[in-house]
Amino acid sequence: MIEGVHETSNSERLRAAGLRVTRPRLAVLSAVAAHPHAGADVVLHSVRAELPQVSRQAVYDVLHALTDAGLIRRIQPSGHVARYETRIADNHHHVVCRSCGAVADVNCAIGHAPCLTASETHGFTIDEAEVVYWGLCPDCATRAETSPDADPA
C-alpha cells in the first residue's frame, strides 16, 4: 500500500461509515480496490502480503462488514464465487465470461439508475436494476475460434 494515499482516504471512509479503522480493514479495502471483481481468496492472498498473520475468517468478517457498511459491493454471478468491488456509487452492471469466469464492468444500460424500467413494479419503489451479461471474453472467444473442436456452426 502507498503510505498516505489510500490509507488516509480509506481511513476516512471507514470512520464515515461508523467503523473503527484497523489494519485488516485498511488492507482489505486496498486489496479490493487493487483487484476489482476478486473473490475472497484473491483478497486474502493480497492482504497476507501486507499482514501475513491475518486469518481467513478475519478477511471474510471484514468483507462482510465492509459490504454491510456500503463501502464495497458484493456480486455473485450464478454458478460463481462471490466477488467484491469498490465501485459502489453508481448502478453499473457486469459481463461474465462463460468459459473462464472473467468479469468486467458495464456502465448503466441507458440513462440513470435504475437504468431499466420494470414492466410491473408491484408497488415497489425501484431504485436499482442488476443486470448480468453473459458471453465469452476476447481470449476465450479467440481460443474457441481456433480450437480444432470448435463448432463450425
Rank of each mutant, 00 (worst) to 15 (best):
I2R: 10
G4K: 01
V5I: 06
V5W: 12
V5P: 02
H6Y: 07
H6M: 06
E7M: 05
T8F: 07
S11R: 00
S11D: 05
A16S: 11
A17F: 01
A17D: 02
L19Y: 02
R20Q: 00
V21G: 03
V21Y: 04
R23C: 00
P24H: 04
R25F: 07
R25N: 08
V28Q: 01
V28M: 00
V28T: 00
L29M: 01
S30Q: 12
A33I: 00
A33L: 04
G39M: 06
G39A: 14
G39W: 10
D41G: 13
L44W: 14
H45G: 15
V47L: 14
V47A: 11
V47C: 13
R48S: 10
A49M: 14
P52K: 10
S55C: 09
A58C: 09
Y60R: 12
H64S: 08
T67N: 03
T67P: 05
D68F: 00
A69T: 02
A69N: 02
G70L: 03
L71W: 04
L71Y: 02
L71K: 01
I72E: 05
R73C: 02
R73W: 07
I75M: 09
I75K: 08
Q76E: 15
Q76G: 13
P77Q: 07
P77H: 02
A82C: 10
R83T: 06
E85I: 00
T86L: 02
R87K: 04
D90Q: 03
H92P: 00
H94W: 10
V95R: 05
V95M: 08
C97H: 11
C97S: 10
S99L: 02
V103I: 12
D105P: 07
C108R: 05
I110H: 15
H112E: 08
H112D: 12
P114M: 12
S119T: 14
S119K: 10
S119M: 14
E120V: 15
T121D: 08
T121F: 09
E128C: 00
A129K: 06
A129I: 06
A129W: 12
V131N: 05
V132E: 14
W134A: 01
W134Y: 07
G135R: 14
L136Q: 12
C137I: 09
C137Q: 08
P138E: 12
D139G: 07
A144N: 10
P148F: 10
D149C: 09
D149M: 09
D151C: 07
D151V: 03
A153C: 02
